[in-house]
Amino acid sequence: MSKTTARPTSVQLYSVRDAIAADLAGAVARVAEVGFTQVEPYAFHERADDYAKAFADAGVTAPSGHAPVIDAAEPDVVLDAAARLGIGIVIDPFVPTERWQTADDAKRLADRVNELTVRAAARGLRFGYHNHQWEFANKVDGRAVFEIFAEHLAPEAVLEVDTFWATVGGADAPAVLRSLGDRVVAIHVKDGKVSGDIATVLPSSESALVVPDALQAAYENQTPAGQGDVDVPSVLAAAPQALRVVEFDSYSGDVFEGIATSLAWLQENDR
């Protein structure tokens, strides 16, 4: 398989989290063997030494990474780890639905992102947020609360739009991407069924990593890109500037085969 694609393509290592937990270096090496030269690690500050060695050994880079920064008592720990690992874009992946209910909620979160954006910039980094479905499903006067949040962001703050979850939340993901323009520096490319438990069951309010059984089962209906309900070609066309990041929340088959199939589809169709 070719290791090049028409546009920059990465993979969220959360997709292979069980393999990461068992053998981080081996999992990163296997992702590289699939054909990815870029990865997006999660909670990278907790295992910075391990990630640094694994990336060097596998010959991959991490242009972006996920970590809980918005609620961090010591965000500098995360930002320093990002700078060390060469992660130029730090993304907070999760603020639960309870804090996305009102316009004041949206402004409060935007203010915090703006504050962290300044702190990140002092290290030459960019900072932003990654959505799930509730930021679009939750409405304020008929508008998605995410839209209000985006309006309050400083120009330097960035976004990684999870196009699957935006679709699950009822948004027209390509229209969202077009409206946000260059603020969108990365997109999560995933596909699958967008109705049923996947749309209605939420993770815990403490962590996106705590997943109820019904939601875990619904995750397994996710598919490689181009095989589900998301209009992935229109998503890609709407954000030509964005880093493509393949992700599965879970997968009923071999997840390494799933990410390989998504990469092959992108190599063929994302031109």
Rank of each mutant, 00 (worst) to 15 (best):
A150G: 03
F36M: 03
V201Q: 06
E147V: 05
D57N: 01
S179L: 01
R17Q: 07
L109V: 11
A208W: 14
V168W: 08
D162A: 06
D270V: 02
G59L: 01
V145C: 06
F36R: 02
V34L: 11
Q227I: 02
A82E: 13
A25L: 03
Y219C: 03
D231Y: 03
D111Q: 08
V245C: 07
D92A: 12
V158W: 07
H45P: 00
K3M: 11
F44Q: 03
G26I: 07
V246N: 13
P8A: 13
P155C: 09
F136V: 00
P203L: 08
A154W: 00
F164L: 03
A29Y: 01
P240R: 12
K193N: 10
V34M: 11
Y42D: 02
A52E: 14
T167G: 01
L236R: 09
V194D: 00
V158Y: 09
K193W: 08
N138P: 04
A27M: 03
A214L: 05
D141K: 11
F36L: 03
V176M: 10
A25S: 13
R126D: 14
G65V: 13
Q267E: 04
A208I: 14
H188F: 01
E33Y: 11
L209M: 15
E40A: 04
V140R: 01
L125A: 06
D50H: 05
V176P: 07
K193R: 15
Q267L: 02
Q12M: 13
T261G: 07
A72W: 06
G124M: 12
A29G: 08
V211A: 11
L13R: 07
S195E: 14
L116C: 09
G192L: 10
I187T: 04
V140W: 01
D50E: 15
K107D: 09
P93H: 10
V161K: 05
I70C: 09
V145I: 14
V69C: 15
V39I: 10
Y14C: 01
Q267M: 02
I89W: 15
R271Y: 05
V140C: 01
E98L: 14
H188E: 03
F256D: 11
G86P: 06
V113D: 03
A27Y: 04
Q216L: 14
S179C: 01
R143P: 01
Q101M: 04
E156V: 02
A32P: 11
D18E: 08
I70G: 06
T9I: 14
N269Y: 13
L13A: 07
F146S: 12
D197M: 02
A83H: 13
K3F: 09
D213I: 00
G86H: 10
A186R: 09
L109C: 07
P93D: 08
E268M: 06
P174C: 08
V184P: 04
A83R: 15
R108C: 00
A154C: 00
A106K: 00
D141Q: 11
A83S: 13
V185H: 06
S195P: 02
A166P: 00
R143A: 14
V184R: 10
A208N: 11
V78G: 09
